[in-house]
Write a protein that binds this DNA or RNA. Structure first.
Lengths: 240, 240
DNA sequence: CATAAACCTGACTATTTAGACAAAATTGGT
DNA sequence: ACCAATTTTGTCTAAATAGTCAGGTTTATG
C-alpha cells in the first residue's frame, strides 16, 4: 500500500499474504504478476464495470476461482492495480529546488514523462480512464498527495520566474501542459499512430517527440534548450 | 449519418423514422434527445460495456423497453452517440489556407478548441474514452477523414515554415500538441479542478487557459500573439 | 513419511443483463 | 366515432455476471 488515500477509498484488504512456509513462492509471484497484468489490460480496454473476472482469468490462463483466491473481490483487484500505478509514478520523479537550472529541469521532466508513457502505456491509459470517468477511486489521492506535489513544483517555478530566469507563465498551467502533451502519446497512441500511418512507436519517434516537446515548451518559456549529452557515447562523463 | 466510416463499422440501422402521420412529433424529438444525452453520460462514466440500457432508461426517465423502441440495440445507440460527436467536430473547424496569418490561425484554433472542450465536455470525454480503449468503433474514421484533415492542416503549416513565417517545427506534432493540451481541460477536468481546488470552471478560467496556451505555443513557434479584439466592446469593428 | 498449511478448481447460486414480444394506449386524419 | 399507424410498457428469456464453497492437490518442514 503506497498511499493512505487509496486505503480509505475502499475495503482494500488483499487476501493476506500467507505467513507460513509458502510465504514467497515463485508460483505465487508469477500468478500475482500475471493476474495484475491481465487485469490492467482488461480494465483499460473495457473499463472497471465492463471487465469480467472471467476475462481476466482467461487472459492470465488460470481458472476464475483462482483470481478470487488471490484477490478477494473485483474492486480489490482494481485497487491493487491502481496502487501499482501510483507507486510507479511516485518513484519516478525527483524533487527539484530553486537552485536547479529551469531549462535542465523542464527538459528532463518532459523527457522522463515521455519515456514513462512509452515504457508503461497501460498504466498511463488506466490512469486516464480513471480521471475521465471522474476519478471515483483516485479523488482522495489527487486532493492530497498529487495536489501537494503540484504545489511544490509550482512554487519552485514561481521562484525562477521572480528571479527572472524564465518567462512569466502560470506555473500550474505549465505543469498541466507538460502532463497533457506528454501523456497524449501513450493515451491516444491509436489516434497518433493511425494518423501517422505507423504500426507502433519506435525509439526514433520517441526521441523526435521528446525533442519537439522540449524545444517548443522551453522556447515558450523563454528558455534555451540545455546542452544534452551526445547519444550513445557515454565516454565524456567528466564535467570540464 | 455523417461519415461513411462509421456506417460500415457496425450494423447501424436506427429504427426507421416513421413515415406516416407521427413522423416528427415533439415527444419523439424530446425522447430521442433525452435518451442520447443520458446515454452520453452513462457511456462516459462506465464505458460501453459497463453501461446498461436500464441505467440509460432510468436517467432518461422512461421505461427500458422504450429505449429499445427508438434504438434497436445498445451498439446502435452507441453509434448514434458517436455520430453526433463526429458531426459536432466536423462542423466546428474551418479550413485554412497558406494565405492566412499563422499567428491568427493558431490562436483561433487553440481558443476554439478550448471553447469546444468547455461547452461540450461530455463529447470530448466520450471521444477520449473511445481512443484510449483502442478506438474500436472509430478506427476507420481516424484512418480516413481525420488523417486527411490533419494532413491538410499540416501541409499549410509546412508552407508557412518554408516561407519563413514561423519557426521550423514538426507540423503534425504541433497539431497533436494543440489537441492534447486543449482537450486536457475537458477530459481531465476532475484532476485539474481538484488540484486547483475549484468546484467547476468559470469563464474567467477558460480565458486564462486560452491565453496561457495561445501565448506559450505561439511563442514556441516563434510567433507574436495576434492583436485580439478587446473583450466586451464590439464597437470598434472597422479596420483602420 | 506424516502432516498441516497453502494452493487449486469445478460446480453452484443469486443477480443482472440485452433483447423479444404482445398487448395496451395514444395519436391524427377521415 | 372510427381506424390504422405509432408509441408505450409490463413481462419473459437466455446468457453472463461476481462471488462462494467444498473437496482435492501440492508443498515445505520436522
Amino acid at each position: 500500500m503506497v498511499n493512505k488515500a487509496l486505503e480509505n477509498a475502499m475495503d482494500f484488504d488483499p487476501n493476506e499474504t500467507p505467513t507460513g512456509k509458502y510465504r514467497a513462492g515463485k508460483i505465487r509471484d508469477r500468478n500475482l504478476t500475471n493476474i495484475v497484468k491481465a487485469a490492467e489490460e482488461e480494465f483499460v480496454q473495457h473499463g472497471y464495470r465492463g471487465t469480467s473476472i472471467q476475462a481476466i482469468a482467461d487472459r492470465a490462463q488460470i481458472p476464475k476461482a483462482n483470481v478470487h483466491y488471490y484477490f478477494k473481490s473485483k474492486s480489490n483487484l482494481y485497487i491493487a492495480v491502481l496502487d501499482n500505478l501510483i507507486h510507479l509514478w511516485n518513484n519516478f520523479f525527483d524533487e527539484i529546488t530553486e537552485k536547479d537550472d529551469p531549462a535542465v529541469v523542464l527538459d528532463e521532466f518532459i523527457r522522463k514523462k515521455v519515456e514513462l508513457s512509452y515504457t508503461h502505456p497501460r498504466a498511463s491509459k488506466l490512469f486516464a480512464m480513471e480521471i475521465v470517468q471522474g476519478a471515483p477511486h483516485l479523488k482522495d489521492y489527487i486532493r492530497t498527495e498529487m495536489r501537494q506535489w503540484v504545489r511544490r513544483k509550482a512554487a519552485v517555478i514561481d521562484t525562477w520566474i521572480e528571479q527572472g530566469r524564465m518567462a512569466n507563465v502560470d506555473s500550474m498551467q505549465l505543469i498541466f501542459l507538460i502532463w497533457s502533451s506528454t501523456q497524449h502519446y501513450a493515451d491516444f497512441d491509436t489516434q497518433v499512430l493511425t494518423i501517422m500511418n505507423r504500426a507502433e512507436y519506435e525509439p526514433d519517434m520517441i526521441r523526435d517527440i521528446s525533442d519537439f516537446l522540449s524545444q517548443l515548451i522551453l522556447r515558450g518559456c523563454g528558455l534555451e534548450p540545455p546542452a544534452r549529452p551526445a547519444p550513445q557515447t557515454a565516454l565524456d562523463d567528466a564535467d570540464a
